[in-house]
Write a protein that binds this DNA or RNA. Sequence first.
DNA 1: TGTACTTCGCCGCTATCATG
DNA 2: CATGATAGCGGCGAAGTACA
Length: 205
Amino acid sequence: DMGANTGLINNVGLNAFQIALEQASIDPKYATKKLAAIYEILEPDYMTVQAEGRLIKLDKRLMEFLMLNLMMAMFYTRLGENVVRGGNAFSSGDFVDVLSHFPDTVVPERRKKRAYISNILSKNEVTRDDKYNRKLFRRIKHGQYIINPQLSLWVEDEWRSIYDLLSLDLLAYRLRDGQSYFYVNIDEHLQKQLEHFRSQVMALC
DNA sequence: TGTACTTCGCCGCTATCATG
DNA sequence: CATGATAGCGGCGAAGTACA
Protein backbone atom coordinates (compact mmCIF):
# COMPACT_ATOMS: atom_id res chain seq x y z
CA ASP A 1 0.00 0.00 0.00
CA MET A 2 2.93 2.34 0.67
CA GLY A 3 4.48 1.72 -2.71
CA ALA A 4 7.18 -0.79 -1.85
CA ASN A 5 8.90 -2.44 -4.81
CA THR A 6 7.40 -5.93 -4.84
CA GLY A 7 9.75 -7.02 -7.63
CA LEU A 8 12.80 -7.25 -5.35
CA ILE A 9 14.04 -10.67 -4.35
CA ASN A 10 15.56 -12.15 -1.21
CA ASN A 11 18.93 -13.88 -0.87
CA VAL A 12 17.60 -17.14 -2.30
CA GLY A 13 15.96 -15.63 -5.36
CA LEU A 14 12.32 -15.37 -4.30
CA ASN A 15 10.18 -12.24 -4.53
CA ALA A 16 7.45 -11.29 -2.05
CA PHE A 17 4.71 -13.05 -4.01
CA GLN A 18 6.72 -16.27 -4.11
CA ILE A 19 7.52 -16.04 -0.41
CA ALA A 20 3.78 -15.84 0.26
CA LEU A 21 3.26 -18.90 -1.94
CA GLU A 22 6.08 -20.69 -0.13
CA GLN A 23 4.40 -20.01 3.18
CA ALA A 24 1.04 -21.17 1.79
CA SER A 25 2.60 -24.38 0.49
CA ILE A 26 3.97 -25.19 3.94
CA ASP A 27 1.14 -24.00 6.15
CA PRO A 28 -2.47 -24.92 5.17
CA LYS A 29 -3.84 -22.49 7.75
CA TYR A 30 -1.99 -19.63 6.11
CA ALA A 31 -3.29 -20.78 2.72
CA THR A 32 -6.94 -20.83 3.79
CA LYS A 33 -6.95 -17.77 6.07
CA LYS A 34 -4.29 -15.31 5.00
CA LEU A 35 -3.31 -16.02 1.42
CA ALA A 36 -6.24 -14.43 -0.42
CA ALA A 37 -5.64 -10.91 0.92
CA ILE A 38 -1.90 -10.92 0.39
CA TYR A 39 -2.17 -12.63 -2.99
CA GLU A 40 -4.13 -9.77 -4.43
CA ILE A 41 -1.56 -7.21 -3.32
CA LEU A 42 1.59 -9.06 -4.31
CA GLU A 43 0.63 -10.86 -7.50
CA PRO A 44 2.47 -9.28 -10.44
CA ASP A 45 0.43 -8.61 -13.61
CA TYR A 46 2.77 -10.80 -15.62
CA MET A 47 6.25 -12.23 -15.64
CA THR A 48 8.77 -12.17 -18.44
CA VAL A 49 10.79 -15.26 -19.24
CA GLN A 50 13.02 -16.44 -22.03
CA ALA A 51 13.45 -19.97 -23.37
CA GLU A 52 15.52 -20.95 -26.39
CA GLY A 53 16.02 -17.32 -27.26
CA ARG A 54 12.29 -16.70 -27.38
CA LEU A 55 10.70 -14.01 -25.24
CA ILE A 56 7.59 -15.14 -23.39
CA LYS A 57 5.18 -13.03 -21.42
CA LEU A 58 3.24 -14.99 -18.83
CA ASP A 59 0.02 -13.20 -17.97
CA LYS A 60 -1.18 -13.66 -14.38
CA ARG A 61 -4.45 -15.23 -15.48
CA LEU A 62 -2.59 -18.18 -17.02
CA MET A 63 -2.22 -21.34 -15.00
CA GLU A 64 1.34 -21.49 -16.33
CA PHE A 65 2.07 -18.28 -14.44
CA LEU A 66 0.94 -19.76 -11.13
CA MET A 67 2.61 -23.10 -11.73
CA LEU A 68 6.00 -21.56 -12.45
CA ASN A 69 5.75 -19.31 -9.40
CA LEU A 70 4.70 -22.27 -7.28
CA MET A 71 7.59 -24.36 -8.53
CA MET A 72 9.96 -21.61 -7.50
CA ALA A 73 8.18 -21.18 -4.17
CA MET A 74 8.40 -24.91 -3.43
CA PHE A 75 11.99 -25.24 -4.60
CA TYR A 76 13.82 -25.28 -1.26
CA THR A 77 11.10 -26.99 0.72
CA ARG A 78 9.03 -29.51 -1.20
CA LEU A 79 11.46 -30.18 -4.04
CA GLY A 80 14.21 -30.59 -1.46
CA GLU A 81 12.13 -33.18 0.37
CA ASN A 82 11.15 -34.98 -2.82
CA VAL A 83 14.77 -35.27 -3.90
CA VAL A 84 15.96 -36.43 -0.49
CA ARG A 85 13.14 -38.92 -0.11
CA GLY A 86 13.42 -41.07 -3.20
CA GLY A 87 15.16 -38.98 -5.81
CA ASN A 88 12.01 -37.49 -7.28
CA ALA A 89 11.23 -34.00 -8.52
CA PHE A 90 7.84 -32.24 -8.84
CA SER A 91 4.80 -34.27 -9.79
CA SER A 92 1.18 -33.27 -10.34
CA GLY A 93 0.40 -34.60 -6.85
CA ASP A 94 2.51 -31.86 -5.25
CA PHE A 95 0.34 -29.22 -6.88
CA VAL A 96 -2.88 -31.03 -6.00
CA ASP A 97 -1.80 -31.17 -2.33
CA VAL A 98 -0.79 -27.54 -2.09
CA LEU A 99 -3.61 -26.05 -4.17
CA SER A 100 -6.28 -27.97 -2.25
CA HIS A 101 -5.84 -25.47 0.58
CA PHE A 102 -6.02 -22.38 -1.62
CA PRO A 103 -9.35 -20.52 -1.52
CA ASP A 104 -11.54 -20.88 -4.63
CA THR A 105 -11.42 -17.13 -5.13
CA VAL A 106 -7.66 -17.37 -5.67
CA VAL A 107 -7.63 -20.61 -7.68
CA PRO A 108 -10.90 -21.96 -9.10
CA GLU A 109 -11.81 -25.57 -8.29
CA ARG A 110 -11.24 -26.83 -11.84
CA ARG A 111 -7.61 -25.75 -11.68
CA LYS A 112 -6.95 -27.89 -8.62
CA LYS A 113 -7.63 -31.17 -10.36
CA ARG A 114 -4.84 -33.60 -11.14
CA ALA A 115 -5.79 -34.01 -14.80
CA TYR A 116 -5.72 -30.29 -15.43
CA ILE A 117 -2.38 -29.81 -13.70
CA SER A 118 -0.85 -32.76 -15.52
CA ASN A 119 -2.07 -31.26 -18.78
CA ILE A 120 -0.32 -27.94 -18.08
CA LEU A 121 2.92 -29.68 -17.14
CA SER A 122 2.93 -31.86 -20.24
CA LYS A 123 1.87 -29.08 -22.59
CA ASN A 124 4.78 -26.89 -21.52
CA GLU A 125 7.45 -29.56 -21.39
CA VAL A 126 10.45 -28.53 -23.49
CA THR A 127 10.27 -31.39 -25.97
CA ARG A 128 6.53 -31.23 -26.50
CA ASP A 129 5.42 -30.30 -30.00
CA ASP A 130 2.64 -27.85 -29.25
CA LYS A 131 1.85 -24.50 -30.77
CA TYR A 132 1.48 -22.85 -27.38
CA ASN A 133 4.31 -24.64 -25.61
CA ARG A 134 6.07 -22.11 -23.38
CA LYS A 135 8.88 -24.52 -22.58
CA LEU A 136 8.73 -23.86 -18.86
CA PHE A 137 9.29 -27.39 -17.61
CA ARG A 138 11.57 -30.30 -18.21
CA ARG A 139 10.61 -33.91 -17.57
CA ILE A 140 13.39 -35.91 -15.94
CA LYS A 141 11.36 -39.11 -15.80
CA HIS A 142 7.77 -40.27 -16.07
CA GLY A 143 5.63 -37.81 -14.12
CA GLN A 144 8.64 -35.97 -12.64
CA TYR A 145 9.26 -32.37 -13.63
CA ILE A 146 11.69 -29.58 -12.85
CA ILE A 147 11.83 -26.00 -14.08
CA ASN A 148 13.45 -25.94 -17.52
CA PRO A 149 17.16 -25.37 -16.75
CA GLN A 150 17.42 -23.33 -19.97
CA LEU A 151 14.91 -20.80 -18.70
CA SER A 152 15.88 -17.20 -17.94
CA LEU A 153 13.79 -14.74 -15.96
CA TRP A 154 13.67 -10.95 -16.08
CA VAL A 155 14.31 -10.11 -12.42
CA GLU A 156 15.44 -6.80 -10.92
CA ASP A 157 16.10 -5.35 -14.39
CA GLU A 158 18.34 -8.11 -15.68
CA TRP A 159 18.18 -11.58 -17.17
CA ARG A 160 18.89 -14.32 -14.66
CA SER A 161 19.27 -17.95 -15.52
CA ILE A 162 16.84 -19.92 -13.37
CA TYR A 163 19.37 -22.06 -11.50
CA ASP A 164 21.59 -19.05 -10.99
CA LEU A 165 18.61 -17.33 -9.39
CA LEU A 166 17.61 -20.35 -7.29
CA SER A 167 20.43 -21.95 -5.37
CA LEU A 168 20.91 -25.66 -5.95
CA ASP A 169 23.46 -25.62 -3.14
CA LEU A 170 20.83 -24.66 -0.62
CA LEU A 171 18.31 -27.23 -1.82
CA ALA A 172 16.85 -29.09 1.15
CA TYR A 173 19.32 -27.34 3.39
CA ARG A 174 16.51 -26.14 5.54
CA LEU A 175 13.11 -27.69 5.94
CA ARG A 176 10.47 -26.31 8.18
CA ASP A 177 8.95 -28.02 11.16
CA GLY A 178 5.77 -26.14 11.89
CA GLN A 179 6.79 -22.51 12.13
CA SER A 180 10.48 -22.83 12.72
CA TYR A 181 13.48 -23.58 10.57
CA PHE A 182 15.78 -26.41 11.34
CA TYR A 183 18.73 -27.86 9.57
CA VAL A 184 18.24 -31.31 8.22
CA ASN A 185 20.60 -33.90 9.45
CA ILE A 186 21.65 -35.20 6.09
CA ASP A 187 23.42 -38.51 6.17
CA GLU A 188 25.76 -39.81 3.51
CA HIS A 189 23.04 -41.55 1.51
CA LEU A 190 20.82 -38.45 1.35
CA GLN A 191 23.83 -36.36 0.50
CA LYS A 192 24.42 -38.62 -2.50
CA GLN A 193 20.80 -38.24 -3.62
CA LEU A 194 21.19 -34.48 -3.49
CA GLU A 195 24.50 -34.54 -5.33
CA HIS A 196 23.04 -36.75 -8.03
CA PHE A 197 20.11 -34.39 -8.49
CA ARG A 198 22.36 -31.34 -8.64
CA SER A 199 24.64 -32.81 -11.27
CA GLN A 200 21.63 -34.01 -13.24
CA VAL A 201 20.25 -30.47 -13.33
CA MET A 202 23.62 -28.87 -14.05
CA ALA A 203 24.09 -31.20 -17.01
CA LEU A 204 20.86 -29.84 -18.50
CA CYS A 205 21.80 -26.18 -18.08
C1' DT B 1 -17.84 7.51 -33.51
C1' DG B 2 -21.15 3.92 -32.42
C1' DT B 3 -23.05 -0.65 -32.71
C1' DA B 4 -24.00 -4.99 -34.52
C1' DC B 5 -22.23 -8.77 -36.37
C1' DT B 6 -18.39 -12.02 -37.84
C1' DT B 7 -13.98 -14.05 -37.58
C1' DC B 8 -10.18 -15.93 -35.32
C1' DG B 9 -6.53 -16.79 -31.90
C1' DC B 10 -5.93 -18.67 -27.59
C1' DC B 11 -6.35 -21.50 -24.49
C1' DG B 12 -9.72 -24.41 -20.75
C1' DC B 13 -11.00 -28.60 -20.04
C1' DT B 14 -11.79 -33.47 -20.23
C1' DA B 15 -12.20 -37.91 -22.78
C1' DT B 16 -9.30 -41.22 -23.87
C1' DC B 17 -5.12 -43.56 -24.40
C1' DA B 18 -0.51 -44.98 -22.23
C1' DT B 19 2.45 -46.48 -18.62
C1' DG B 20 4.47 -48.66 -14.70
C1' DC C 1 -5.32 -50.19 -11.22
C1' DA C 2 -3.79 -45.71 -10.29
C1' DT C 3 -1.58 -42.15 -12.26
C1' DG C 4 0.46 -39.67 -16.23
C1' DA C 5 0.20 -37.97 -21.17
C1' DT C 6 -2.09 -36.37 -25.08
C1' DA C 7 -5.48 -34.80 -28.54
C1' DG C 8 -8.62 -31.86 -29.86
C1' DC C 9 -13.44 -29.80 -29.22
C1' DG C 10 -15.61 -25.85 -27.82
C1' DG C 11 -16.00 -21.29 -25.44
C1' DC C 12 -14.64 -16.73 -24.92
C1' DG C 13 -13.21 -12.38 -25.92
C1' DA C 14 -10.29 -9.47 -28.87
C1' DA C 15 -9.86 -7.92 -33.35
C1' DG C 16 -11.83 -7.14 -37.71
C1' DT C 17 -15.66 -5.54 -40.75
C1' DA C 18 -19.62 -3.22 -42.34
C1' DC C 19 -22.64 0.13 -42.14
C1' DA C 20 -25.08 4.02 -40.10
